[in-house]
């Protein structure tokens, strides 16, 4: 059984159909890539998945159960955590406090939550920054903090929204290492990414969309060779 299932997901904004009839399955333990040109509807799908937007029709199943219409915080408690494309650090809290606040999702006692936060920071290579205010971190650190916070909620499924965007080449390699490390710890990952180096090297399967509709699905190699994908990215001269 798939860990996450989107069934004919549709999302309208007034007269604009941003997501049209998307169906996909994410299996436990894999890294599943979601790609598409700008404005294809990738982030909208994420926003539907954690109930930031109500969905127009279709259904979202997590471990076989519908999560349609649940509140955002409940979805987190069920085990789906997400990062934001435009990072949302809790600016005037320290890095440690950011992660501790997230750790309370599973842990009641403040001492245990802090301990868990320390562990997660260690895992994400943020220990040296733990007493800094989140707003003082550079973009690379903020992206790491986004991931650290989601990990502190102990998710089964992690939704990463363009975690690698805006990083320099060294940071990019570190980000890839971190994502693989997260996968190895047993967390399933659904990732949106524009940087092909990242998405092609880590994904087990890729789902490509354009104008809110599915255009291809398969292994990275298959998708890269798919004429519809090439057309969407490079124009029909190359397809």
């Amino acid at each position: 059984m798939a860990l996450l299932e989107l069934k004919n997901l549709v999302k309208d904004f007034g007269g604009l159909r941003a997501v049209n009839d998307i169906t996909l399955h994410v299996k436990k333990g894999e890294i599943f890539g979601l790609i598409g040109p700008n404005g294809a509807g990738k982030t909208t799908i994420f926003n539907c998945m954690n109930s930031y937007y109500p969905i127009t029709s279709g259904d979202i199943l997590f471990k076989g159960k519908s999560i349609k219409g649940l509140k955002t915080y409940k979805i987190c408690h069920l085990g789906i955590a997400r990062t934001f494309q435009i990072v949302k650090p809790l600016a005037r809290m320290t890095v440690l406090e950011n992660v501790t606040a997230a750790a309370f999702c599973r842990i009641k006692k403040i001492k245990d939550a802090k301990e868990e936060a320390h562990k997660v920071l260690e895992f994400c290579n943020l220990t040296s920054e733990k007493d800094k205010l989140a707003k003082s971190l550079p973009i690379g650190g903020r992206k790491r903090l986004e991931i650290a916070r989601t990990l502190a909620t102990k998710p089964e499924l992690l939704l990463l929204d363009e975690t690698a965007a805006g990083l320099n080449p060294t940071e990019l390699d570190e980000a890839i290492d971190l994502i693989i490390k997260i996968k190895d710890s047993g967390i399933t990952i659904l990732i949106i990414e524009h940087i092909m180096k990242v998405i092609m090297s880590i994904s087990d399967r890729i789902h490509a969309i354009n104008f809110g509709e599915t255009i291809a699905e398969g292994t990275p190699r298959e998708v890269a060779a798919n004429p519809a994908v090439i057309e969407a990215y490079l124009g029909d001269d190359y397809a």
Binding site: Y73, L90, M93, E97, F104, R149
Partner: peptide, 23 residues
Amino acid sequence: TKWGYYFVSIREDQDAAASLGIN
């Protein structure tokens, strides 16, 4: 307490707070 952490998280970013499991 936990409440304190949650209050400040809500102040800093409501959407981020909700996505971290805060009601």
